[in-house]
Design a protein around this nucleic acid. Sequence first.
DNA 1: TCTGAGACTGAGACTGAGTCCTACTCTGAG
DNA 2: CTCAGAGTAGGACTCAGTCTCAGTCTCAGA
Lengths: 144, 144
Amino acid sequence: MEPDVHQTVAARLRAAAQRYTANRRALVEALWDAGHPLTIHELLAVRRDVPQSSAYRTLAILEQVGVVRRVVTNEEFTRFELDEELTEHHHHLICSNCGAVDDVSIASELERSVERALNRVARRTGFTAVSHRLDLMGTCRNCA
Amino acid sequence: MEPDVHQTVAARLRAAAQRYTANRRALVEALWDAGHPLTIHELLAVRRDVPQSSAYRTLAILEQVGVVRRVVTNEEFTRFELDEELTEHHHHLICSNCGAVDDVSIASELERSVERALNRVARRTGFTAVSHRLDLMGTCRNCA
DNA sequence: TCTGAGACTGAGACTGAGTCCTACTCTGAG
DNA sequence: CTCAGAGTAGGACTCAGTCTCAGTCTCAGA
């Protein structure tokens, strides 16, 4: 695990007068290790010591301080991943059959033109863009 | 309302041995009129004659036959819109403050390069892409 | 025009992901 | 050492969405 991730998280929590406790550390590490968005159930399966209510509370706090991001798919479960500032900008391959979600990147040049185009659209409609989400829906290798 | 939308919907339902009843027609029309994804509550507010359970059932059926698409945001409610084959390919501006969702299009040339790039990524990872989703998250004009 | 199969409906019971409450524990500044 | 307030566990609770079931409607065939 990258050495400075914990430091960054700790700093952001401190800035919000929050502590970086064992539970919070455990969830951050689980998300880092997975390398793709996890559901609460997957998280709890990996970290059996963390109770469900604490997991939800912790993720909500981590989301508030910008460490964790909510990833919604067409499944009924929310997934969570580390914010892109701790990992890197990426997109998702979402399997509409089994619900699996994988991370992928696209060429940075294309990324930039998408960004520019979206900012143009946003400006035209008076919308203040903060981020974008570009996901592929389809069938994963296992379900094919 | 475009004349052939009802015909297309009727045909798809018929192909699945389903009827195009008044309730189904009402919801399709409401979605068409809105021009952007609606929550169940918004739909029910527009069509007070349709009971909640029927609305959910109807939308599920319309989704199965490819007439309606589920749009998930970070809100806790699912939204529904007509499938792109009945309208046209578009993206969403999602306000993370009030939850409003608006439709927008981007230059078709950029659209094609995104499509190509995504297909390349998909092929490389053994993923069978069906569609993509490109949304802008931020703050809408009203909430700014 | 009748009739039966099965598509459709509405009301309300039910499910379960996610939230909230509360009593308790931990931590660190003073 | 102590105490304020941050953090925790777990169980009750909420409510969007699903399911069930008894009844209604439609239409093809007789």
